[in-house]
């Protein structure tokens, strides 16, 4: 087998079915959040919690428990109550676009971008203002701010313009003041260039932090035999390795220890951490980071 020539970084492609999948996911998220709010109804009636901002027609797949029966009795058309979870809430999504995100097929960046888009949809559906940030091709941090549901398409276009071309972008992103101003912060990337403590510095009172480690299949489950020259896309450093069960087991143990350290650190601070393989559906990854 010949040494493979690495292609230029693959573009993010959000296919035609993606928008529909995101819409369903956001609706389910909104419904789930509403149920959670209903569970604490007394508090809501006392003035705290979600604020009723209006009504809208019931969409297919939505939870019928949000149906406003009084309106239905009067108009004989299904309307649901629309609430703003917390007025003025800001979400920030930090997307790692370092070159190492180009690994895998589909690439790690592809899944991370899909998750970012889905998180933006969920945030907008909840009435939050969502800010996406990533390091651009020129090396500077670029932002896309969405405050209305109609803005989501612009978010998606912005995500499609991302490419895995930056060097060491994660640390730069975490230092952005906009992340400090957000109520919820999502860090999406392979996290190999970060330590848990660096991300958890963002976890202050009133601010939730969630991290998603996106890994390629060869990183999660490398082949157990043969020979390979591992190459770091950012530094172009190489490590020739004759794969044997012994060496692969040692690698997997080291990887598991690292991921356990991340999960343990986040759990101790009450924050959310998830791991996803790049070919997996983005819905699973979104559920993982939103469960907190």
């Amino acid at each position: 087998m010949s040494a493979r020539v690495e292609p230029t970084s693959a573009a993010v492609v959000l296919g035609p079915a993606y928008a529909e999948r995101v819409r369903r996911l956001a609706a389910a998220f909104a419904a789930q959040r509403a149920r959670a709010s209903s569970a604490s109804g007394a508090a809501r009636r006392a003035g705290g919690g979600d604020e009723l901002v209006g009504h809208r027609p019931l969409r297919a797949g939505e939870d019928a428990r949000d149906l406003d029966v009084e309106l239905y009795a009067r108009l004989e058309r299904p309307f649901v109550r629309e609430r703003r979870a917390e007025a003025g809430e800001r979400w920030a999504v930090a997307l790692d676009t370092s070159r190492s995100m180009d690994v895998g097929a589909p690439s790690k960046l592809q899944l991370a971008a899909e998750v970012a888009g889905a998180l933006a949809a969920c945030g907008l559906r909840s009435g939050a203002r969502v800010e996406l940030c990533a390091v651009g091709r020129a090396g500077g941090v670029e932002f896309e701010v969405c405050s209305r549901a109609l803005d989501w398409a612009r978010c998606a276009r912005w995500l499609e313009l991302r490419s895995a071309s930056a060097i060491g972008s994660s640390g730069v992103l975490l230092a952005q003041p906009r992340l400090l101003a957000a109520r919820r912060v999502f860090v999406l990337g392979d996290l190999f260039d970060l330590e848990p403590a660096q991300v958890l510095t963002l976890a202050r009172r009133g601010r939730a932090v969630a991290a998603l480690a996106v890994l390629a299949p060869t990183e999660l489950a490398p082949p157990r035999s043969g020979a390979v020259v591992w190459r770091d896309l950012e530094t172009q450093a190489r490590a020739p390795v004759a794969l044997s069960p012994e060496v692969v087991e040692r690698y997997r143990a080291a990887l598991e220890a690292r991921l356990d350290a991340w999960a343990g650190a986040f759990a101790r601070r009450g924050q959310s951490f998830a791991v996803a393989a790049s070919p997996s559906p983005f819905e699973d990854a979104v559920h993982g980071v939103l469960r907190a």
Partner: peptide, 19 residues
Amino acid sequence: APDEPTGALELWRAAQLEA
């Protein structure tokens, strides 16, 4: 050996230290 990109080069290097 085929050339494979990875983000976990340091982990592989650590795994190699004992082999």
